[in-house]
């Protein structure tokens, strides 16, 4: 089975990086970082850092991919070769990255009004520049903020967060150590205004009560991250005003 972690994951109510189980890492959000793109964002969950760039809606090429009644969305999740700590990651898209790309696309699609743009294509690029656990959750937040920055009609933002089980305790926003040695992992994507869940993956074995508690914690963490995301979107507009007046 899994080896013992190099440091204890939980001592009392402190995790290996000094957080409490229900505490998220410091969240940083900046909008409009890729000026070539129609919309972009960079999101950090602690040391995990993801850049998202959105292009479109544009004409769908190759043509046969286009749908007659709605836009198609293409999501590319990719980890930079320098993003991991020990070994250089092979830059070729791995099985895992292809799968996460699809999972993220399916988590974003319910939030976007794809039917407003028949026959078009929306490209979403996600580049993990530094990976320290919860990369898909951070990617989801970054993608949704980049879509909002691009002005693509959305029902709501989608905020991602992971909840996990470490030494039998439910903890939010796992880092890579907890992800590797913990007993369970639950990445979840939530539309905070509507309260809907768009991403729900789970591994490990959870009791019903723990799962309910985990989802409750996820909603709380998402609320916190959503507040920071809103501030970042606001900052993009209201800094310009201060310069002007």
């Amino acid at each position: 089975m899994t080896k013992a972690p190099p440091v204890p994951l939980l001592v009392g109510d402190r995790r290996s990086d000094g957080r409490r189980p229900d505490e998220v890492r410091p969240i940083e959000v900046e909008i409009g970082v890729v000026t070539n793109a129609d919309g972009s964002a960079v999101v950090s969950y602690g040391r995990t850092r993801v850049v998202a760039a959105v292009y479109g809606p544009k004409e769908a090429h190759p043509r046969h991919l286009a749908l007659p009644d709605k836009a198609i969305m293409r999501v590319r999740y990719h980890m930079a070769p320098f993003s991991t700590k020990d070994e250089r990651k092979n830059p070729a898209p791995s099985r895992r990255e292809i799968e996460i790309s699809r999972v993220l696309r399916e988590a974003l699609e319910p939030s976007v009004f794809l039917e407003h743009f028949p026959r078009s294509l929306i490209d979403v690029f996600l580049e993990v520049v530094q990976a320290d656990g919860s990369t898909r959750a951070a990617s989801l937040t970054a993608a949704s903020l980049a879509l909002a920055d691009a002005g693509i009609p959305m029902r709501d933002l989608v905020i991602g967060v992971s909840v996990g089980l470490i030494n039998g305790t439910i903890a939010v926003d796992l880092n890579s150590l907890e992800d590797q040695y913990g007993e369970g992992d639950l990445p979840i994507g939530i539309m905070p205004n509507l309260g809907h869940i768009t991403l729900f993956q789970l591994d490990g074995s959870w009791t019903r009560d723990r799962l309910v508690e985990a989802v409750r914690l996820a909603y709380r963490a998402v609320g916190e991250i959503y507040g920071i995301a809103r501030e970042a979107l606001k900052k993009r507009y209201f800094e310009a005003v201060q310069e002007a007046t």
């Binding site: 693509i152 009609p153 959305m154 029902r155």
Partner: peptide, 14 residues
Amino acid sequence: PVYIDNGRYRSWCL
């Protein structure tokens, strides 16, 4: 830029 959801108008963008 608004849509109707459950009897309420909501914004669809910033």
